[in-house]
Design a binder for these strands. Structure first.
Lengths: 232, 232
DNA sequence: GTTAATTGTGAACAATTTTTGAATGAGAGG
DNA sequence: CCTCTCATTCAAAAATTGTTCACAATTAAC
């Protein structure tokens, strides 16, 4: 689950810059170029964090901030053109959680976002192993480790991720494109036969270990991780 | 239990700015606009930390600092208008623990406060050693000391913290970003290759000590402290 | 049984990631 | 003020993995 960030700035270039950086870091983003759109997007997109320029058409950043604060406590980071104490105090009084001043370092913005959204991430972080078990197989994505009968098998990252994804949805067939989307990333550009090769290498390593499960080819469709349901 | 911080500055805007930031971060605050009020508030509010501007009406920050030091060792952080060596030396001589110069980043002030009050809290906390043991290795974060067999190895702080963090979650893979967040701080801005270098130095020092554990690279993912589970 | 489409395989190649050594910068202590 | 250590950055080198391609094998349909 990735966090959603709403970017509000009337400068398209800045929006684009932020968008690229944030998406590279795994955030979902939406952009608004003025105060009115910002409020609409806030409703529609339901962001977990808002980057909010102070100088905006229609409604100022401070106004937007106040309006949002009437109904929600979504973290808001103000972007101010200069570090005048007045602007900053106004913003913080309006309910902003933090601010950055232009020109800013994208990295710095990322750090601030991490800081203010820390409380959300706590929910998902720091828990025990996310591992899948099937008969004699253990797929542990936290350790990036595959275990067959207490014997660890070293698996390259992609193979690990592919196996984990397939095994997360046993018996469900995925097309190569679906697998590329999920494991390689939606923006992956390349040959779908790549999947075949990874499947092949996986098979070499975990083939014949158990008859309870296996990687199965579904002709003209794709692949699935098949699990035999034990019956009487 | 939240820490109490007394803010002393004759500029109302700066007081307000600091107050907002501190309260967002969970501190209790009180404000004094001059030296006399500062001393009164010190008695009445009993802060755990004091932010003290040097230039003040009635009593200068240095004088306030001296007076407080006669009866208490409450951490004091001086705020100086510029980084004149004289001011800083005077302040530190008067018993201040740290100082920041205007214009300052609120974030920086927060970090300083955390720094000076941590030591403060540690003194009263005084718990037993938080140490990790693996085969012939002992990682003692309280002493910042690494012991191999009974032979202590001197480790720089960062290496110590990194090793401790990794060893706290054996076998779990951490990405470089996760490590930067956890060990360097969520607001760290810098190159993730830094982690590599620290890992390398750690390896030079503790490599080959035991085959029960080791620092392992997980390609395309990150690093983990791997512990071999004993088998029959 | 033949054919056309689809998948499996092995090896070469390309791309990415990590390691390493050295240079630079920052800070502590004398 | 100087020296020393530690932290960080950088770029070249080394290592590993990911991808592609050509061809073989398999499947399904007629």
């Amino acid at each position: 689950m990735s966090l959603k960030v709403l970017i509000v700035d009337d400068d398209k270039n800045i929006c684009e810059l932020l968008r690229l950086y944030l998406e590279k870091d795994g955030y979902e983003t939406a952009v608004a170029l003025n105060g009115r759109t910002a409020l609409e997007q806030f409703e529609a997109f339901a962001p977990d964090c808002i980057l909010l320029d102070v100088m905006l058409p229609y409604y100022s950043g401070t106004q937007v901030c106040q309006t949002i604060r009437e109904t929600a406590d979504t973290p808001i980071i103000m972007i101010t053109a200069r570090s005048e104490t007045d602007d900053v105090v106004d913003g913080l009084n309006a309910g902003a959680d933090d601010y950055v001043t232009k020109p800013f370092e994208p990295k710095e913005v990322l750090a601030r976002i991490k800081a203010v959204t820390r409380r959300f991430q706590k929910d998902e972080a720091g828990q025990s192993d996310r591992a899948l078990r099937f008969d004699r197989l253990l797929v542990d994505i936290d350790r990036y480790e595959l275990t067959v009968d207490d014997h660890t098998v070293n698996l390259p990252a992609k193979e690990m991720e592919l196996l984990y994804y397939l095994a997360s949805n046993p018996n469900r067939v995925f097309t190569r494109d679906q697998l590329l989307d999920a494991v390689w990333g939606f923006d992956y550009i390349g040959d779908s036969r790549t999947v075949d090769v990874h499947i092949k290498r996986l098979r070499e390593k975990i083939e014949g270990v158990s008859d309870q499960w296996g990687l199965r080819t579904v002709w003209r469709v794709g692949y699935k991780f098949e699990v035999v349901t034990a019956h009487a």
